[in-house]
Design a protein around this nucleic acid. Structure first.
Lengths: 214, 214
DNA sequence: TAGATTGTTAATCGATTAACAATC
DNA sequence: TAGATTGTTAATCGATTAACAATC
């Protein structure tokens, strides 16, 4: 398994995008698509699409193109949407609650099993059938329930300590919403979501455009 | 202005990251830093740091390095944190409210001036001094208040129409939280935030790691 | 001055695009 | 079969890294 050629991050990041476009095609009732047609829809080259897909296998057929449903399912498998991950949310503030309510994640195999906070006013409250629990009970919960992923929505200053704590308890994936590049010495997969970075890039690009217009 | 060499998206996306690290250094009371030292902190090469910074000017000094406060301010200027943008949030569901409460954005010059929704139960409610208004009153509000940026937190199916509507009214930047690649025929800057894409990449990487471990 | 470190050019690496033989 | 379109190799392009003269 580990002998296979390494797939670049650039390709991996495009997979969910392919998955979305194929889902749209499926909804539109389109059963087959060529890399050329998909290319014009997605605004990337047909070459890139064929290269990307061929990292994982030959899903198409010469002279025909790709069967939409088949390709959709194959990319779904590659992304592991059929695997189930047990997820907890740490920090039930605005962002934590917003994510807890975002039921779409369940469709992709991310099963929310617990929410934790320190605020006594929040503890006991329910979000979509899940009770917000005290942070004190988290360690035990993680061990007993074999949690795969922790979504970190705690304040900036507490993030590194909490990350370390859950990683030591065996959590294998972290989805971090604090504006810091979380890194851990352990074998843990971390995805950093930097909303303020994204907004600042928007601001930069906006300024550039306005400058040029002047 | 438009004659200057084009700066690549790769560089632009790193700017907020530099800004964060410099902010940390400042907080730690560190007054000067070499590209080498910054490189080891950030986990990128010193070469890249010097190349990136030199896209915008020579901020350092041979034999000395960079003055942290000066560089922080310069990058802040490049990112336009001193410019003020008028922002509205469209859709006051979970994500909209979470973003409305995230007061950190104000620090970077993004001033929330309005929140809009269609839900009568939400209209009239206040979030941080801003009243949630009816979507019906949005067009007028945008024109009267010269809104720069709209944050789109509306359901998937309504996103393209709302985006088009605000773009026609002169909104120049869109921060889109719907899981679609929003594109518009107008001269509008769009930043797509694809939370579910990010989560699926985490899932993929997690699966890969678990496969190799077996 | 000597040492350190930048700014910048040149070399390398990796990712994207083009081309085309294979084949449905 | 003829036309279409893939899978894949080769060419190009752009981004990263290395090297080093300039200079504080």
């Amino acid at each position: 398994m580990s002998l296979e050629k390494k797939i670049s991050m650039a390709v991996i990041k495009r997979l969910p995008r392919y998955y979305r476009y194929l889902s749209d095609l499926l909804r539109l009732g389109i059963t087959r698509i060529s890399s050329k047609e998909l290319s014009s829809r997605m605004g990337i080259t047909a070459s890139q699409i064929r290269q990307d897909l061929n990292c994982f296998g030959g899903f198409g057929q010469q002279g025909y193109g790709y069967n939409v449903e088949y390709l959709y399912n194959e990319i779904g498998n590659i992304l592991g949407v059929n695997e189930t991950f047990k997820v907890i949310i740490i920090g039930a503030g605005n962002m934590g609650q917003a994510l807890a309510n975002y039921s779409n994640f369940e469709k992709r195999g991310f099963k929310l099993t617990g929410i934790f906070d320190v605020n006594p006013e929040l503890i006991g409250k329910r979000i979509r059938d899940i009770e917000i629990m005290s942070l004190d009970s988290m360690d035990r919960f993680i061990m007993e329930n074999r949690v795969d992923i922790a979504i970190l929505c705690v304040p900036y200053e507490h993030t590194p300590a909490i990350a370390d704590r859950v990683a030591c308890l065996g959590v294998k994936g972290l989805w971090n919403f604090s504006p810091m590049d979380l890194k851990l010495p352990y074998d843990v997969i971390i995805e950093n979501v930097h909303l303020s970075d994204s907004l600042m890039v928007l601001g930069y690009r906006l300024n550039e455009m306005l400058k040029i217009e002047k």
